[in-house]
């Protein structure tokens, strides 16, 4: 107990002496671990390479600059592909994730013993694999191209959207649901009148946020053959066309800034 009795009355401290000792030991262990990890990390480092890192960086930097802006012309189509890949992938992901979220949420799941664990497993499985890995798998299954990219984006989005959405469903106010139930509403009406109004802001916020992330991810999916800007990036890297690489990075940056702006606007509008 943090309260101890002394002659001058009770004394209150946040932690007991044992908890204080444990906390101190914990911090000490953390510092020790950091020092040890640093030694392991640097054991195989060839310091000669690190020493000339600034020169190497400057060398690549000088080759990348100035960017070949004329190359943008040939990037517009891949850019369009990238945006479509992100948007369609997000749509598909959200459409699949929404029913899964209702199955996974404790308060709406039809069965806590069967449906909920299955839904949670789908969510975890989708989240545990990066879109790039999904794309790698799908390119070898479906062949290279946009379709593989769209499905990879969708598969990764299911977990993200599903998890955040089911948490939002679990946070809905039970009294509002109860009130709709008490009117004699059916199951679909209960979803429409009781749950949907409560989760709608979260739903739109999550979807737009995921779209924003997917724009970034779809820009690199081309690296494994899923089409879009990434494909151009890989092609340029392969022929060491550094000014083109710079241009592609600038285009990606501009796209991400744009998607960020859109998602901020949308989220502002729904709150």
């Amino acid at each position: 107990m943090p309260v101890t009795q002394t002659e001058n009355g009770p004394v209150w401290r946040l932690r007991t002496p044992r908890a204080r000792l444990a906390l101190w030991a914990g911090w000490f262990a953390l510092v020790a671990l950091t020092v040890w990890c640093w030694q392991v990390m640097t054991r195989d480092t060839i310091w000669l390479f690190v020493l000339d890192a600034p020169q190497q960086a400057a060398d690549i930097g000088s080759r990348m600059f100035p960017p070949r802006l004329a190359y943008i012309e040939r990037l517009l189509w891949p850019l369009w592909d990238t945006i479509n890949m992100a948007t369609l992938g997000t749509l598909l992901g959200v459409v699949i994730a929404t029913p899964i979220a209702f199955l996974a949420a404790r308060n709406t799941s039809p069965s806590l013993l069967i449906a909920r664990p299955i839904a949670l497993f789908i969510i975890v499985a989708s989240r545990s694999i990066n879109s790039l890995i999904w794309a790698l798998l799908l390119v070898s299954i479906l062949g290279p191209g946009l379709l593989a990219g769209i499905i990879a984006i969708a598969l990764r989005s299911i977990g993200f959207v599903g998890k955040l959405l089911y948490e939002a469903i679990e946070e809905t106010e039970a009294s509002q649901i109860e009130a709709i139930q008490a009117t004699g509403a059916g199951g679909a009406q209960l979803l429409n009148y009781g749950y949907w109004p409560q989760i709608a802001p979260a739903f739109w916020g999550i979807s737009v946020f995921r779209w924003d992330i997917n724009i970034r991810e779809s820009a690199v999916l081309g690296l494994v053959g899923a089409g879009g800007l990434g494909l151009q990036l890989q092609a340029s890297l392969n022929v060491l066309a550094w000014p083109q690489v710079t241009t592609i990075l600038l285009v990606i940056l501009a796209t991400v800034v744009f998607s960020e702006w859109v998602s901020a606007k949308v989220r502002h509008a729904i709150i």
Binding site: S175, Q176, E178, A179, G186, Y193, P197, Q198, P201
Partner: peptide
């Protein structure tokens, strides 16, 4: 049924809330 803390669906309009009494 009338509730403590009203239990209205907060993000729906007054009219939609009243009409939700007809859902059955």
């Amino acid at each position: 049924m009338i509730f403590q803390e009203y239990a209205l669906v907060e993000r729906l309009t007054v009219m939609e809330n009243v009409l939700s009494g007809r859902l059955g």
